[in-house]
């Protein structure tokens, strides 16, 4: 095993990185610190890898934290079987490129029962194929720490969550029993069966993520860039008709539109936005003009009042 990296496995050659602004540098170094604390204090961490932009940044920071060593933990992808093909291809390519141990988990029971986003509704589907799947994977393999790419600016219950977020043996979050978190003194002490969800990107904003991706030349799934896609419009959301499993309502006719994604999830539940932004800088320029938040495109967040908090309590990331 050769752990020291050559230039080829590091950031792409030929790219002249921008000097990070002091603010991005500070966020980067804070995240690296968090990764190292977990590796040092917890027995068996795992990085939850969704293939999205935040996961890309998360992974990039993890590589920095442990260089020249390999990642001292595997990455875990919860595959609902309803992800975009591009996400799966990107996942496999990333694992190969960085030489990572990739674990893919699907809720087999849910799959056998045919739980899908059409017949069961987004709320139940998410509970079974994402939340339950994640809890199964973490429990079966005995991980005591799981890194996630959630950011506090995404949603108001997340704004109150700790960087080291304690989970009971049932993997539940109790917002009223959070440990005070002062300075950079994270408390990773747990008992058998309990675990910590760790959010190294807590203090990053959506704009920070994109600017960092640009500055560090980090590869992301091409779905973030505009291209023509077959679209149907539902409840004001633009849904890509990604494969034959997509159910069309009577009279519903897909039309080709120039779209991209701000946020990626399961394709029937993720709204695209109309855009012509085909490059990172165009994406960022477009972002600066946005007046809605990125979770606007996530149907699962709007199911009910406080839906994110409820899902989080149950074990969702």
């Amino acid at each position: 095993m050769q752990a020291l990296q050559s230039g080829a496995s590091g950031p792409a050659t030929g790219h002249v990185p921008f000097l990070l602004s002091p603010h991005l540098k500070r966020l980067q170094d804070e995240s690296i610190f968090i990764f190292r604390e977990v590796a040092a204090e917890l027995r068996k961490p795992v990085l939850l890898y969704s293939t999205g932009k935040d996961s890309s940044v998360l992974l990039h920071l993890a590589m920095k934290a442990f260089h020249p060593a390999r990642l001292p933990f595997p990455i875990l992808h919860i595959d609902t079987t309803w992800k975009f093909r591009e996400m799966i291809a990107f996942r496999d390519e990333t694992a190969r490129r960085l030489g990572l141990e990739l674990i893919v988990h699907t809720n087999g029971e849910g799959l056998r029962r045919g739980v899908n986003p059409f017949d069961y509704g987004s709320s139940y589907y998410t509970q079974v194929m994402k939340t339950e799947a994640l809890k199964q994977a973490l429990a079966e393999r005995g991980y005591d720490a799981a890194f996630g790419g959630a950011r506090r600016d995404e949603e108001r219950s997340r704004a109150k969550e700790r960087i080291f977020s304690f989970r009971s043996a049932a993997q539940e979050w109790d917002p009223k029993k959070q440990r005070p978190e002062l300075w950079n003194l994270y408390n990773g002490r747990i008992r058998e069966g309990e675990s910590i969800r760790v959010f190294p990107l807590s203090n990053w904003t959506e704009l920070d993520i994109w600017q960092y991706i640009l500055a560090e030349n980090i590869p992301v799934v091409p779905l973030y860039f505009a291209k023509p896609q077959p679209i149907v419009e539902r409840d004001g959301q633009l849904i890509v008709v990604h494969d034959r499993r997509m159910r069309l309502a009577p009279g519903e006719e897909p039309t080709m539109r120039m779209v991209r994604f701000r946020s990626l999830g399961c394709y029937p539940l993720t709204g695209a936005i109309e855009s012509t932004a085909g490059t990172l800088s165009a994406v960022i320029a477009e972002m600066l003009g946005f007046r809605t938040s990125e979770r606007m495109g996530r149907l699962i967040d709007r199911d009910e009042e406080a839906s994110m908090e409820r899902k989080k309590r149950e074990g969702y990331f």
């Binding site: 600017q211 640009l214 030349n217 590869p219 091409p222 973030y224 085909g278 960022i284």
Partner: peptide
Amino acid sequence: TATAATTAPAANVL
């Protein structure tokens, strides 16, 4: 992948 599409951006704007 995305980075291939990176062109020299107007860094100050960003």
